[in-house]
C-alpha cells in the first residue's frame, strides 16, 4: 500500500451534510472493472440526466482541477459499504478527506487504500470550506506525522488519529501481512473456541 506522509494540495469544498456513497459513485457503476469507474465520481452531481456537466458543481470548476483533498460536511460518505467510494476518489487523485464526521465503514475503508480521513471540529471545517469558496483553488496542507491540517488561512489545527492507523499509513503497512504475523495467536484462539463453542 502507498504510504501517506504529507499532502499540500488544492482542496474541494463539499457542503452537503450526509453526502452518501451512492452520490460518490452511483450503484450502476459498481460491478465493472475499476479503471472504467474513474469517470463515475460524483456522477449524478456532476452531470445532468442528459449528461451535460453542471458548471456549478465544484469538480467541474477549472480552479479545482488537480485537487487532492476533499473538505466535506458532517456524516460524509455514509451509507453503503462499497469500497469503490474510496477507490474512485483515490483514482481521481483525492487522498485526504476532512469532515466533522464520517460514515463508519467508509472511514475504515480509507485506511485500506492509503487514504486519510480526518475528523475536525465542525466549526473549523466550515471555516475551511468558506475559505475555499472565497478563493477557489486554495490549498490545504496535511502533515500526518505531526497530525496537523493547515487551512488556506494559514491556521494550523491538530487532529486525532489512532496510533495504529497512523503507523500503518506512514509506513504503508499491508494489513493482511501484519495479521498473518499473529498466526500463533489466531490458532490458539481457534483451539480455545473449539473447546468452548463446540457447536460452531
Amino acid at each position: 500500500m502507498e504510504a501517506f506522509t504529507t499532502l499540500d494540495a488544492v482542496a474541494i469544498p463539499i457542503d452537503q451534510p450526509n453526502l452518501d456513497t451512492d452520490q460518490i459513485i452511483p450503484a450502476r457503476f459498481l460491478g465493472k472493472p475499476r479503471p472504467t469507474q474513474v469517470e463515475a465520481l460524483f456522477h449524478d452531481l456532476r452531470y445532468t440526466p442528459d449528461k451535460k456537466p453542471r458548471p456549478e458543481f465544484v469538480t467541474n470548476m477549472p480552479a479545482y482541477q488537480g485537487a487532492r483533498i476533499v473538505v466535506a460536511e458532517r456524516n460524509f460518505a455514509c451509507g453503503s459499504s462499497r469500497e469503490n467510494a474510496v477507490t474512485v476518489m483515490v483514482d481521481n487523485g483525492l487522498r485526504a478527506f476532512i469532515a466533522p464526521s464520517f460514515g463508519d465503514i467508509f472511514f475504515n475503508n480509507c485506511f485500506q487504500n492509503g487514504a486519510l480521513p480526518i475528523r475536525l471540529d465542525a466549526k473549523r471545517v466550515a471555516e475551511i470550506r468558506a475559505a475555499l469558496h472565497a478563493k477557489p483553488g486554495s490549498t490545504v496542507k496535511i502533515d500526518l506525522a505531526s497530525q496537523t491540517v493547515t487551512g488556506p488561512d494559514g491556521k494550523a489545527d491538530r487532529f486525532e488519529i489512532d496510533s495504529f492507523r497512523k503507523d500503518c499509513l506512514l509506513k504503508g503497512v499491508d494489513e493482511v501481512n501484519l495479521t498473518l504475523g499473529y498466526e500463533k495467536d489466531i490458532a490458539a484462539f481457534e483451539a480455545k473456541q473449539r473447546q468452548e463453542m463446540s457447536w460452531l
Partner: peptide, 14 residues
C-alpha cells in the same frame, strides 16, 4: 465491511 476487509477476513478470519 468493505472489500479489502472482506479479503482480510478471508485470509485471517480476523
Amino acid at each position: 465491511i468493505g472489500s479489502s476487509e472482506v479479503a482480510h477476513v478471508m485470509a485471517t478470519e480476523c
